[in-house]
Write a protein that binds this DNA or RNA. Structure first.
Lengths: 143, 143
DNA sequence: TCTTAAATATGATTTTTGTCATATATTTTT
DNA sequence: AAAAATATATGACAAAAATCATATTTAAGA
């Protein structure tokens, strides 16, 4: 469902949401360790996210990654789509292209309500929402 | 969530449920084409399933794969576990090992109800159930 | 008992995903 | 203007998943 890369990316963005700001940028090496992802790997993912404006970055001394308020309004789904593309998530559970709502395959028929719920949540929950959930003690780290 | 291999396996078993019986065994080459999976690949998966008694088989002329009534009572989850193992399905959405019900990570908190629903359905729906759903016109093929 | 038709076992190859390394571009500080 | 610290771009390498190939075993039928 989610690739490893997506999971890493979500962890990194969440970390940025909780620890960074425009005034407080964070370097790759400072992200990699607390979220338990190899530095070179998370660097590449962060670059992908930055290119697609999911996160912000600045090079040079005093540079680093950070989230603007606008960035924080991105949905979790956006992160996943940037990293994994959108095919995997939208596809039928058996990857049948002839399968759809009016002509559901057996698995589709059985699982799609729950699946659509997940998709809807991923689409509507923002980075900000998740960060808030942590701050309120509804959910927990570490990553 | 489901590997390609699992999807193929489910398709094959469903095909057997609808078309085979102890008296009417089906050869690999007769399965591969209608479910759109390369023959050599589905052969290997069928062997895995056979070894774990999810499906039945007989070698030699007049041999082939088939489902007994007992086979048909297997859950869909059983197929997946044989092919993919059980780690992937049970793992937290962010693959955090410190994440659990009482200490949920943000994604866990957000998605786990739906996820558990899916798991429950996979565990309780049998091959027979799905085949019936097709026969009753509730869901559709082809695979 | 021999031949043939099937599954089975094993492993080789290819593709995709994940990981690592290095050279380049940009920004800040001196 | 030069030096240093950072992200960026690119691509090499490794591991895992998917695919393909081949030799072996088993059962049926002549």
């Amino acid at each position: 469902m989610l690739s490893n890369s997506s999971k890493y990316a979500i962890k990194a963005v969440l970390f940025l949401a909780l620890n960074s700001s425009e005034e407080n940028k964070i370097r790759v090496k400072e992200i990699a360790e607390p979220i338990n992802v190899p530095q070179a790997y998370i660097a590449k993912l962060l670059q992908d996210l930055s290119r697609e404006n999911i996160i912000s970055s600045l090079r040079g001394p005093k540079g680093g990654f950070y989230l603007t308020n606008e960035n924080k309004n991105n949905s979790i789904l956006n992160i996943i789509v940037v990293i994994d593309g959108d095919k995997k998530l939208k596809a039928c559970m058996l990857s049948l292209d002839k399968c759809n709502e009016t002509n559901p395959c057996p698995l589709h028929d059985m699982l799609n309500n729950s699946r659509d719920e997940i998709l809807k949540k991923l689409k509507h929950k923002t980075i900000k929402d998740l960060a808030l959930s942590v701050k309120l003690g509804k959910s927990f780290l570490p990553l």
